[in-house]
C-alpha cells in the first residue's frame, strides 16, 4: 500500500513523515509482543464496554429487587449473580467501568499537567527555584502515596471527586522529575536561544517550546502509572472514602460483598476480577510500550 511505503521511506521528505515513520516502526515492534497486544485488546474492550454500558447491560444498575438477592452466578438473566440488594452484578460492573475510566481520565489529565508545570519551571529557571521546587517534590515522594491520599480524603470528605483530587495530588512528583530531566537536556539548545532572541518570555518558551519536548516521556510514564491509579482508587472505594453508594464503583462493590464472603463468594470476587483484568491490561500495554520506546532495551 502506498501509505505504508510512505511510512517506511528511508529518506523522509518532511519532519512529520519521519516522525510518523518512527511511530509506525514502533507499532510494528509492539505488534510482535503478544502480551502488549493482549493489554491493548483489554483496554480497547474496556472503552467499548464502558461507552455502550446502557445498551449492553441487561438490568438497571441501581434499582433494587430484594426477591432476587444473592443469586449465584449462572442464574438465568444474571450471568454473574446478584448482590445483597438483588442488583445484577454484571450490570453493575459494566457501569462501574465508566467510573473507573473517568477517574483514570481525570487523573491522567491533572497530575501530569501539574508535574509538567513544576518540572519544566524547575528545570528552566534552575538555581533557587529549582532547589525549592525539587525539595517540595522530594517531600511528596517521601510520603507513602496511599496514606497521603487517605489523609487528604479524610480532610476533604469522602466522595469520588475528592478521591480523584487526592490521587492527583499524590501522583504528580514522578512527572515533575521526568519533565525536569527532559528540560535540562533542551534548556541550552540553540532553538531555545533563538526563540528567546526573538523576544519570547519565559512563559512562552516553557509552554510552547519546552513542554512539547517533555510530553513523550511523560505520556509513557502515565501509561505505566494507570494501573497503580486504578488500584489506589479501588482501595479508597473499598475503605468507603471514594465513590459512595449506590454508585457501582468496583472497590465499593468488593467492600459490600465482604459481609457475604464465605457464603456468597461471587459478590466480592467478580468486581475484584474486573479490577485485576483492567489493571493487568494497562500493565501489559505499559510494559510493551516501554520495551518499544526505551532505546536502551530496543536492541534486546
Amino acid at each position: 500500500m502506498a501509505i505504508i511505503a510512505w511510512l517506511r521511506d528511508p529518506n523522509p521528505a518532511s519532519r512529520r513523515q519521519a516522525r510518523l515513520g518512527q511511530a509506525y516502526l514502533g507499532w510494528l515492534r509492539l505488534r510482535r509482543n503478544p502480551l502488549a497486544m493482549a493489554g491493548l485488546v483489554i483496554i480497547g474492550l474496556l472503552l467499548v464496554l464502558a461507552a455502550f454500558a446502557p445498551w449492553l447491560a441487561p438490568h438497571d444498575p441501581i434499582a433494587q429487587n430484594l426477591q432476587n438477592r444473592l443469586m449465584p452466578p449462572g442464574t438465568p438473566g444474571h450471568l454473574l449473580g446478584t448482590d445483597d440488594f438483588g442488583r445484577d452484578i454484571l450490570t453493575r460492573i459494566l457501569y462501574g467501568a465508566r467510573i473507573t475510566l473517568s477517574v483514570i481520565a481525570l487523573v491522567a489529565v491533572t497530575a501530569p499537567l501539574l508535574g509538567l508545570i513544576i518540572g519544566t519551571v524547575s528545570g528552566y529557571f534552575g538555581g533557587w527555584v529549582d532547589g525549592v521546587l525539587m525539595r517540595i517534590t522530594d517531600i511528596f515522594l517521601a510520603f507513602p502515596r496511599l496514606i497521603l491520599a487517605l489523609a487528604l480524603v479524610a480532610v476533604l470528605g469522602p466522595g469520588i471527586e475528592n478521591a480523584v483530587l487526592a490521587i492527583a495530588l499524590t501522583a504528580w512528583p514522578p512527572y515533575a522529575r521526568v519533565a525536569r530531566a527532559e528540560t535540562l537536556t533542551v534548556r541550552n539548545s540553540d532553538y531555545i536561544a533563538a526563540v528567546r532572541l526573538q523576544g519570547a518570555g519565559s512563559v512562552r518558551v516553557i509552554w510552547g517550546h519546552i513542554m512539547p519536548m517533555c510530553l513523550p516521556s511523560v505520556i509513557i510514564r502515565v501509561t505505566l502509572d494507570m494501573a497503580g491509579v486504578i488500584l489506589i482508587a479501588a482501595g479508597l472505594g473499598f475503605l468507603g472514602l471514594g465513590a459512595q453508594p449506590p454508585l457501582s464503583e468496583w472497590g465499593l462493590m468488593i467492600s459490600a460483598g465482604r459481609k457475604y464472603l464465605f457464603e456468597q463468594w461471587w459478590v466480592a470476587t467478580m468486581p475484584g476480577l474486573a479490577i485485576f483484568i483492567v489493571s493487568l491490561g494497562f500493565n501489559l500495554l505499559g510494559d510493551g510500550l516501554r520495551d518499544v520506546l526505551d532505546p536502551r532495551s530496543a536492541g534486546k
Binding site: 488500584l231 468488593i254 475484584g272 485485576f276 500493565n283
Partner: peptide
C-alpha cells in the same frame, strides 16, 4: 502488580 491487594486478601 495488577492485583488489588485487599481483594487478593479476601480471596
Amino acid at each position: 502488580y495488577s492485583m488489588p491487594v485487599f481483594w487478593l486478601g479476601l480471596i
